[in-house]
Design a binder for these strands. Sequence first.
DNA 1: ATGGCCATGCGACATTTTGTCGCAGTTGTG
DNA 2: CACAACTGCGACAAAATGTCGCATGGCCAT
Lengths: 196, 196
Amino acid sequence: MPELRYNNTLPAYDMIEDISEQPTLLIIDDDKIFCGVLAKAMTKRGFSVEITHNIEDALAKAEAATPEYAIVDLKLDSESGLVLVEKLKALDPGTRIVMLTGYASVATAVEAIKLGATHYLAKPVDADEIMAAFDRISGEADTPISASPLSVGRLEWEYIQRILTENDNNISVTARILNMHRRTLQRKLAKKPHRN
Amino acid sequence: MPELRYNNTLPAYDMIEDISEQPTLLIIDDDKIFCGVLAKAMTKRGFSVEITHNIEDALAKAEAATPEYAIVDLKLDSESGLVLVEKLKALDPGTRIVMLTGYASVATAVEAIKLGATHYLAKPVDADEIMAAFDRISGEADTPISASPLSVGRLEWEYIQRILTENDNNISVTARILNMHRRTLQRKLAKKPHRN
DNA sequence: ATGGCCATGCGACATTTTGTCGCAGTTGTG
DNA sequence: CACAACTGCGACAAAATGTCGCATGGCCAT
């Protein structure tokens, strides 16, 4: 197991000398700018980083050389990063995967963890949080329980996400079940969930 | 594995004859009224139900006879239901646990699943949804038939009522907590209890 | 390949529902 | 009494939703 600890005071680039000791990290996110920023941040933290923007490429790279760590975005263009989590885990159960998303929901978080993700974080997120997420192997029952209930908007979002995942992400079916217009559901899904 | 399938048309009480065949279910929630309602609903669905309102009692019962199924509330008075999930799993890894909470969050959902919970649901929920949750082992695969989830309108209504009650029916306070305009809350409350 | 069926993304426009202000009436408290 | 907080409600602009419609794309059986 490579050393993961790090200081907030980052080491200068020239202090990273032994490439062969660096843990490998595969980043999959369709947002290229985000990928670039994240890649740089993780490189600074000692990883040997590779970037891909879709499932196909990610699998190709992973099959060529399975990464020890992976950061997967939940919403790749049209596909779901969840399938990638499953496949990466199949390739190597030891891979530590952090799922990232700007559309976080309890429902998808549950799926991600069940499929083997090490952690699930909502964007925006910084590199340090991702580092911490990689380190958390098992559940820690000390997670504080939120004191305030969700806003109605958030509750609705969570509910919709749940029904949606229960129905294989079929928007039309979900809209029918929820007795809501498909167009409306589309619009709701397009928005990001508000905090709390 | 006990039979979990069920019809929406519930069997009459006198149709349940073979007690020994009933799967055992342990419910842990500090809300006694909720426990009662849920216990009745689950009994109807063929479970041999036991109720406890705190971790201590729950462990005592579980150690005496480990339940096959469990419904654990995340927020027990001052303790966290998460530790209970951990212990129940330790007692018997085969136990299927559904975590329930009125204060859902992605963070606690992640912890719950990592600790071994089978699923994590936000209140309000109905018994059928819990049944479905017990059935959903992993990824997703099937979703036989979504019984009849509440419409988003109905969900919102139930939720608002709960928060309202928790706050002594104070509309202003509730509106603030829910991050919603008081005027809007007023208008929602003025409408009917909603169909579905 | 061709047509039927369904899911999806999205533009456009009429309706509804919210967000906001503001004001008056009530109630509880120092 | 003065003050603070809750409540009900009117009015109007802003935002969300219901509806239609159309084009694209995947599947499947003919």
